Simulated assay, not measured.
Amino acid sequence: MSDADESEPWAQALRRATGLLAEAGVDSPRVDAELLLAHVLGLGRGELLARVFAGAAGTAGEAERFAALVARRARREPVQHLTGVAFFHGLDLAVGPGVFLPRPETELLVDAVLAELTARPAAATVVDLCTGSGAIAAAVAAWAQEHGRDVAVTAVELDDEAASWARRNLEPHGVRLRQGDALVALPELEGRVDVVVSNPPYVPEAETPVQAEARLDPARALYGGDAAGMRIPVGIAARAAALLVPGGLFAMEHHETQGAALIETLGADGGFEDVRVHADLTGRDRFLTARRSAGPSGSQKMEE
């Protein structure tokens, strides 16, 4: 059969691929099968589904490429590695091996930052520490562009591979990328930043990610530097306190077990007040927000 010959209808191929991925333990087998087929055909997922419903079939070559990707996904390669794209807060981000894949729950962290910027005057300075793929910084900058807001965004990333991905995602949105250690970054901005946001490494060192795909994320982006996973998050909070103006917002994702300890650390003598822990859509503690206090220490507040 030549590449121009038609294969089976895509609806049938999708059903078979969905079954294979479900048997392999993939969490969203149908969605992943659709994303892989859309990638093969160079279509958006909506356009793909319209063609599938109309009874379209592909060529033998397309079917072979689709089957090969499905087989790799069944071996638990992340779908984002196979397509080269991660969808995050309305953006298509370039990703691949060597960079932490952005998660849907982190969109809630972005929403907290955007709520803060919406309530502020048009001009603001935002810093994203441990930017990874640049997902958070890109989302904030894209929002500012869309709404005509004067928001200067700077992202910081230490790892060479992650920084190369971040550069691709940040340049279209005018975000400045600074490669270096987030724990000491941007001394020229100390006391001048309105919002500091971070999704730092925070996994406790003995914890192994449950999902096979998550275990392919670089360890440097996962583990928080000690048994409780707290060393790096606490260091990021200290850097945020140095960068922020009084009243400035700090927003940071963290492990579900770390909320109470972070409230105590940031509020007792960490330079923050109104420290609050927020849950994700599953009800797990997922990120905190805090205000930079005017004095050297903040006042501890109860969790929401």
Rank of each mutant, 00 (worst) to 15 (best):
A139Y: 04
G90D: 12
L170M: 01
E157M: 03
E205A: 09
Y202V: 10
R120S: 15
L186P: 11
W143G: 01
R103V: 12
F88I: 04
F88Q: 01
D111N: 13
R103Y: 08
R192P: 02
R76C: 11
E105I: 13
L177A: 10
V151H: 05
R103N: 12
R103P: 09
V156T: 09
R120Y: 05
E77I: 07
V113I: 08
G84K: 10
L108T: 12
G132M: 01
A135V: 04
L186R: 10
A163W: 07
G148I: 04
E188Y: 13
H147E: 15
A163Q: 05
P104M: 01
L186Q: 09
P201L: 00
D159N: 14
A94Y: 08
V153K: 12
E190A: 14
L189E: 13
L158H: 07
A119H: 15
D194A: 04
E105F: 14
A155G: 02
D150R: 09
V127I: 03
V95L: 05
E77H: 09
P121S: 12
A124H: 11
R192N: 06
G134Y: 00
A155K: 02
R167W: 05
F88V: 12
V184G: 10
R178K: 04
R72Y: 03
A155L: 01
P104L: 00
R103C: 09
D92C: 10
F88Y: 04
D159S: 06
P200F: 00
C130W: 01
E188V: 14
E188W: 08
L170W: 00
A124E: 10
E116L: 10
R176K: 06
G96C: 14
R72G: 07
E171H: 00
Q179C: 13
T118C: 15
S164Q: 10
